[in-house]
Design a protein around this nucleic acid. Structure first.
Lengths: 328, 328
DNA sequence: ATTTAGCATTCGAAAAAGCAGAGTGCTAGA
DNA sequence: TCTAGCACTCTGCTTTTTCGAATGCTAAAT
């Protein structure tokens, strides 16, 4: 077990390291720990033995290990009050009456990203809980049409589709009417099933070119439901962190930020704010991902921050909780 | 004036430098120029005097200057046939019958970016030449609605708007009907005028809360017309170029890539493929921007590539021309 | 009048050497 | 248990050296 004093020492080391990104030596903690550097050294080496601290080389100061951060997050750090400045900045969003909720979340995350220099991500989900309220198709020429779906919550999706063969405007109209009749009120995530099992079998009776049209709508719809909306901000900010002092790491991370799949994977269904340090996350072993689900008014998704493992955990968790609370 | 031999020399130096990114020494060109290094040296120093070449330091090999590239692009380089591999890759797009034109352009540019390791940009314009074909408003609750505009070319824009006061569903419906009546057929870029001068004056007669609703629609529409759609790909690729060997340049460029205004400024109305080398462009003095307008089927915009000044000009210009030709 | 060979010179990139400072571990005494 | 002291290690920086690739210039050759 870890002693009182060791816990304090770990706390001091981590918090100092978060500030400076430099290994912490025993001497610098003498006054505050009220003992000699030798004592601190021996405590340090015990913490190292437990795997909570590391050295960058044999005679360097100590640096927190992944396990060290984990311990800090789980057992040492305390939820803090939101800092006044941070709050003030965020208030500008809540007081801006012109912002729709979904925009407000994005804006809040932008602010948090600016405030912290971490990268903010908002993964909007394709509006589960939304029901189809209307389907439209605008024929553009004999080979193209735009399919539009509007949900009861005001979500709109549209997609241009290429028809494999010419289809008459009348036939398109008939198909749309049919789809509307059968689809209105259907939850968005059940649409593809309804299409497949209820509409496909009967569409042939009404429309000559049913294959073609069916396929067009089918691709349009399946795009809707699979598409997660990604908003990122501060991919530049994060490069200001001192850990990005070498060109290859920068390139690696930039590459990962461009990888939509990797980013989409950050999605979570956990309503609590959870922290994934280093190898605990799928994104990058040197980074920490902190994320939570939001869900307001039928719209839901994930908000996340990505930063170095040396992250201001207390502050970040407070920030995320704050905006969650304010949006409910 | 520049002599035959100097022109050849310049060509060789630039093309070699494009390949290797390393200064070119006189000796390396002896065989191909069929003369001694001393001769080449003296020609080189003349080219330098004319400002077409530069040295990185007093005893280094030569590197093309901005003016040198300009001269090369204007007077030396010849339009080439598209390389077979490049063509093959692009063909996959043209043969993919499922792609709508606008998607095909984006996809083509992605491929070009991969092929060249430059960054590709597609700036889609808010569909000039489109006319309003329908306006819809979906009330979400007493304070929010989603406004939808559909154009005759199948372009769809939608936006959630916050109402400043509660407005009844009936009033919303009336307003929408009125707007539809007056707006259908209006070219998208004239919408705000019609709204301001034709609709605003009479809306009060029909609707009690006319201010509120008018404002909502006005903001929604003005967002539509101002919004240029930016698609970028290969921001990572470009970092592979050897000029990005120092961290600060990388950060600078990443910052510029995040700057929507700077990117939007790349927009051009020139239908020819034009090259802007170094300080000739607004983007970055160390980079070259090559761009052209595309316009198909009422949809138009700008496609551009951003790369180092040391760009494969011949290839790039051929590529862009090729996709332009194939889309018309 | 060009072109070439030869030579001293310049400069950068990379390796080697040197140095100061910050830390550590360990031991012996308080 | 804690601390003072000491030998030792390693980094980060600066300085030196070395090496090779180019250059410009001059004088001879074509």
């Amino acid at each position: 077990m870890i002693s009182q004093r060791q816990s304090l020492l770990l706390k001091l080391i981590i918090e100092e390291y978060i500030k400076t990104a430099k290994p912490i030596g025993s001497k610098s903690l003498c006054k505050i720990m009220n003992c000699s550097s030798a004592t601190i050294r021996s405590e340090m080496s015990e913490l190292e033995e437990m795997g909570l601290l590391e050295k960058t080389h044999i005679s360097s100061g100590r640096v927190p290990s992944e396990k060290g951060y984990r311990y800090y997050v789980d057992n040492i750090m305390k939820p803090k009050e939101l800092n006044g400045d941070d709050m003030l900045k965020l208030q500008t969003v809540f007081h801006n009456k012109n912002l729709v909720l979904s925009d407000a979340i994005i804006r809040s995350m932008e602010i948090i990203s600016d405030l912290t220099n971490y990268t903010a991500i908002v993964l909007g989900e394709s509006s589960v809980e939304n029901k189809v309220s209307r389907v439209e198709a605008i024929p553009l020429n004999d080979m193209e049409l735009t399919a539009i779906v509007i949900t009861d919550k005001g979500h709109v999706e549209h997609k241009k589709v290429l028809l494999e063969e010419k289809v008459s405007v009348d036939e398109i109209k008939q198909t749309v009417d049919l789809i509307n009749k059968l689809l209105i009120g259907t939850p968005i995530d059940e649409v593809s099933q309804v299409l497949e099992f209820e509409i496909k079998p009967i569409i042939g009776k009404y429309v000559k070119q049913h294959e073609v049209l069916y396929n067009a709508f089918y691709t349009a719809f399946s795009d809707f439901t699979h598409d997660t909306n990604i908003k990122m901000s501060g991919t530049k900010n994060i490069l200001m962190q001192p850990e990005f002092d070498n060109i290859n790491k920068v390139k690696e991370i930039i590459g990962k930020f461009e990888d939509k799949d990797l980013i989409s994977n950050i999605k979570t269904d956990d309503k609590d704010v959870k922290i994934y340090i280093g190898s605990e996350n799928e994104f990058d072993d040197d980074m920490t991902v902190i994320k939570t689900k939001y869900s307001i008014n039928g719209e839901q998704g994930t908000i996340a921050l990505i930063g170095p493992k040396r992250m201001e955990y207390e502050r970040v968790i407070t920030l995320l909780n704050y905006i969650k609370d304010n949006f409910e």
